[in-house]
Design a protein around this nucleic acid. Structure first.
Length: 476
RNA sequence: GCUCCCAUCGUCUAGUCUGGUCUAGGACACCGCCUUUUCACGGCGGUAACAGGGGUUCGAAUCCCCUUGGGAGUACCA
């Protein structure tokens, strides 16, 4: 049997980090088994679902390298792939359950429901203990009330027994008889709810595996009941751990940047995000930590999931970005970093050869692109640092004499840059003629030539610094 | 409240199923040293964990029970 795995987001916002991780696992598992990765849009919440979010999610998924085989964007044999376009089928199937006595109309109003819930709580019973008030109402009577226009929902008749299933991540999980009550499957508006659509679609779309986050674990019992009611074998379930924030609570907007699009905007590398997310709850069999999607597909399996929730740590993501960036070819590195440097920056005025040398050098010093402009200051800034540490160095006579010497040398030059050879000549002269050595020499040179007390290797930095900048620094 | 799930360094984790090779390994962060100036990279080294208590066993991070802690769910959200 071909493995079929679906990612089924609600288009109520941008794709978030947690969703991206779930999508990644679904994609990885489907591909590892040579199966299909299906995208299904769960938009039965008409109030909050927006088509623009669906479009944005598909874009983000594509950016991450998680291309689907079927979905609303590309069709397939099991469409439509938007739940809002499958409503008639859900309604029919819900009515079928009513006809079979497995579901029933319920006329409880919001107020009544609230009272019953409160009453149950006071009596120390489950909150849903009295939600089945209409479960035994005579169907003829019920039909009359419906025809009279009374608002109602359709509730599923809980068979009232224990349910056990084997979760591919968690092992055997058992839910007690009274875990849930008679739950709603059709709203008063006629719109079906998540737990119902989800089952119908996973069944009709012939899903073999359902990979999702732990927040859905408790939903599984309701879904198991519905599969049973239709006499359909459920798919395999795998509930991976939750992603949490600093406070150990489920990751959400209030934890900062949690939308994929924010990382795209900040120019993170998609392969780095995927690599990092993959390792949040799953481990590589050889404990490798830097890898690509292609590398991990053949070895991906469900047995290496960790059951505890994982904390999302942006610091570590930055590190992963750096690792992936440093593995880029020169051409890819250029394509990646050049567009991230602000327009109008003097960087852009340089030759391609210069840019390449420059980026190859500075990639060692940064993890994410936004750290680059500050690094570039050592080549372009004409400001001089102040502060105690610098003042102390400035007091050294050597700095003044070095500066004076180099100023006279540079004034004679017509080149665009000070070559490395030229810089070595300067250094030799300072050493031999000016008799300066050790840290006085290098600190002095650095301060005289860059205006900074510390920074990257001068042998690399000086030949990359445009002569106009250098002249300005020397007061020429 | 009730139900379900979880529990190894600050964080992500390996090891747990198939007890001994674990004085618990790796990674991020942090600290130190080296790389004949600095920073970074790299290399080397360091700080740092089996939640607690009972069992079972010759032997437990690994198996069992309890406690504690954390999380999720308990919707006409998904």
């Amino acid at each position: 049997m071909t493995v079929r795995v679906r990612f089924a987001p609600s288009p109520t916002g941008f794709l978030h980090i947690g969703g991206a991780r779930t999508a990644l696992y679904c994609h990885l598992y489907a591909k590892a088994k040579g199966g299909s990765f299906v995208l299904r849009i769960e938009d039965t919440d008409l109030e909050r679902s927006k088509r623009e979010y669906e479009v944005a999610m598909i874009e983000d998924l594509l950016w991450l390298g998680l291309e689907n085989n079927e979905g609303p964007d590309k069709g397939g044999d099991f469409g439509p792939y938007r739940q809002s376009e499958r409503v008639e089928m859900y309604k029919e199937l819900a009515q079928q359950l009513v006809a079979e006595g497995k579901a029933y109309p319920c006329f409880l109003t919001d107020d009544e429901l609230e009272k019953l819930t409160l009453q149950a709580q006071e009596e120390k019973k489950s909150p849903h203990a009295y939600h089945g008030k209409y479960r035994d109402l005579d169907p003829v009577e019920a039909q009359k009330r419906i025809e009279a226009g009374e608002t109602h929902v359709i509730r599923f008749k809980n068979p009232g027994k224990k349910y056990t299933f084997t979760d591919l991540v968690r092992g055997e999980v058992t839910f007690p008889e009274d875990m849930v009550g008679d739950f709603v499957i059709l709203r008063s508006s006629g719109m079906p709810v998540y737990n119902f659509c989800c089952v119908i679609d996973d069944w009709k779309m012939e899903m073999t595996h359902v990979l999702r986050a732990e927040e859905h674990l408790n939903n599984t019992v309701r879904q198991l009941m519905i599969y049973e009611a239709f006499n359909v074998l459920p798919p395999e379930f795998a509930h991976c751990s939750l992603l949490v924030g600093e406070d150990r609570q489920k990751l959400s907007k209030r934890h900062g940047a949690t939308s994929v699009i924010q990382y795209r905007d900040q120019n993170f590398l998609p392969q780095a995000l995927m690599n990092y997310l993959c390792l949040l709850g799953w481990s590589h069999p050889e404990e490798k930590d830097i890898f690509t999607l292609e590398e991990v597909i053949p070895i991906f399996d469900l047995s290496r999931f960790n059951k505890s929730p994982a904390l999302y740590d942006i610091e570590k993501l930055r590190h992963f970005n750096g690792e992936h960036m440093r593995r880029l070819s020169s051409a890819d590195l250029m394509a990646y970093l050049v567009p991230t440097i602000p327009e109008g920056h003097a960087f852009h005025a340089q030759s391609n050869e210069w840019k390449e040398t420059c980026l190859e050098f500075f990639k060692e010093k940064i993890n994410i692109p936004s750290e680059l402009p500050e690094q570039l200051n050592v080549l372009f800034s004409t400001e001089s640092e102040t502060g105690e540490a610098v003042d102390e160095v400035l007091a050294w006579e050597s700095t003044a004499s070095i500066k004076e010497y180099i100023k006279s040398e540079v004034a004679k030059m017509n080149d665009s840059f000070i070559s490395e050879e030229k810089f070595n000549e300067f250094t030799d002269h300072c050493k031999k003629e000016l008799k300066i050595k050790g840290k006085f020499l290098f600190k002095g040179l650095r301060l005289a030539l860059t205006g900074m007390a510390e920074g990257p290797d001068l042998k690399v930095v000086i030949p990359l610094t445009p002569i106009e900048v250098m002249k300005k620094r020397l007061g020429l």
